[in-house]
Design a binder for these strands. Structure first.
Lengths: 206, 206
DNA sequence: GGACAACAATACACCACTGTATGGACTTTT
DNA sequence: AAAAGTCCATACAGTGGTGTATTGTTGTCC
């Protein structure tokens, strides 16, 4: 539906001609993976979607596996990279916490395509070693970032880590359980509120 | 490669006779689904695993879809049914809460096959209407049960519902994130502890 | 303006899997 | 003991997918 923008001398369908890049194929693959998971990823389907034949694919990629691994690598790189680009805007502890939670829950649940891809990668990781490795990396990086974000909550590092992990699994879980059913927008908001209260209740309380 | 060897004629390990039943096929399917998801479910593979040919399958099932739908139905029935069989043993609020959390987290994470099947069903539900429907039913039933279990926590029904939902998504999330990596046993225990503290902190506090 | 590289179309060989038709073998019914 | 039912094997047709080899087409550099 959306399609990634190609610099475009030939629009995808019928006009003039432009060459496809590896990234174009990966973008198309993202669509298929979001819709049907890695197991439904077909070279022929991708080619049709891009308006070319499989001949093009096998110029850009060695084989089907090459596509999958390249996609996974790009996914990992992007997920790790995007973590650099977000810092809370400051303010008191509570508003900062609100910002973090909104990012983790409400914002994340809006990009449903990105969400679907992530769930597909996680599922694929259950039966693919390499994918599992990358998912582990991404999880660790995110939890780590949560730790720095929640550093203000407690002076006990272990407590901070546990809290970060709990929040992380809760966000992942809410993405798994509350995916795209109507009325979930409001539900997610309430979960967000509750989480805020819960976390604030976990501040250093000797 | 392992187990499920056929003793002599073509006997199964479960039934008295050497004849296969629909349920035998569904059990075998569970193994495949746990390992590779619904998309890797192959009639031929199942037949080999059971030591018969596909001729048997097409006697017991109309087609591949029949197998899948039957499996989903059985899954739903079992998941709903098992909810009846558990009530907390009583005691004060904290020990009861501990029991519940142990059931939801530690116990659940031990049956890794059951867990893998559930994750596979959830994944399949993302692209299959019927599966999505059943997952919704199961989720609703479980959250509902959590509500009754957590009823002692607060007198505000909405608060109880939100808390139940939060705990539910957290458990699902921990199953998704912490699946079978070593050292997760201890991690789950710590999450369990933290959850207990968190929930106790949410008792009526006007 | 020809050579060469980048990219894509076409055609083919091949395989994994499904579903169906049919024919046993063994069991139960009558 | 013949008929009918139950369960599985075998053989075959069809489909949808991969990968490869070969040939076109276009752009770019000299």
């Amino acid at each position: 539906m959306n399609e990634a923008e190609t610099p475009k001398r030939r629009g995808r369908s019928a006009s003039e001609k432009s060459q496809l890049t590896r990234d174009n194929w990966l973008d198309a693959a993202a669509g298929e993976i979001a819709a049907g998971g890695f197991s439904q990823l077909r070279v022929l389907t991708l080619a049709k979607k891009l308006g070319v034949t499989r001949g093009s694919f096998y110029w850009h990629f060695r084989d089907h596996e090459d596509l999958v691994l390249s996609f996974l690598d790009r996914w990992r790189d992007r997920r790790l990279h995007e973590l650099q680009y977000w810092k809370p805007k400051g303010g008191d502890v509570e508003t900062e916490l609100r910002q973090i939670l909104e990012l983790l829950l409400t914002d994340a649940s809006r990009n449903i395509r990105r969400l679907q891809v992530e769930l597909a990668v996680r599922d694929f990781a259950r039966r693919n070693e390499y994918a599992a490795e990358l998912v582990t990396q991404v999880d660790a990086a995110r939890i780590n970032q949560n730790c720095t974000l929640f550093g203000r909550m407690s002076s006990d590092p272990q407590h901070v880590r546990d809290l970060s992990l709990l929040l992380y699994v809760a966000t992942i879980g809410s993405q798994v359980v509350l995916t795209g059913k109507k009325g979930d927008e409001a539900t997610i908001r309430r979960i967000e509120d509750l989480m805020a209260r819960v976390v604030l209740g976990q501040r250093d309380e000797p």
